[in-house]
Amino acid sequence: MKLPKSSELKQYIVFEIDEEIYAVDVLFVESIERMAQITRVPHSPYEVLGVINLRGDVIPVMSARRVLGYEEIPLTDATRVAIVRHNEYRIGMIVDRVTEILNVPNDKVQWGVEALDGKRKGVISGLINLGDKPVMVMDIPRTLELLLN
């Protein structure tokens, strides 16, 4: 209920796609898993690659590359699935590699940026200005909306 103070630290999980750096608020991430065999699901949204068996539960997985508008590349040893949870949704997000976990003071995040538009409008909602390159913060609720429409 409380709004974070400007100096409060928030944690982000950081991953890279090609040359760009992205981040997801750690509060949305339940765990990070190694890749498992994907079962394709017909008629699923473009971003969803299928479902996986996560310790006895069947959960859908989406590709971060597809969500953000990149070309698909083959999976590697570094490929991870971030299990993302929001409301009643539980879904895996496949990323090329997870690089680090960042502690970011809230005033270092610039909110309300419009990095993407069209169908993907709003999927990137913030920019973290810390190192040499800006880190783009993914808006998980908006991403899930994207899958449902």
Partner: peptide
Amino acid sequence: PLGKALSKIKIVSGA
């Protein structure tokens, strides 16, 4: 269940 995100897919009832 297939998960909420795929609940719109009617021809598959589950996994």
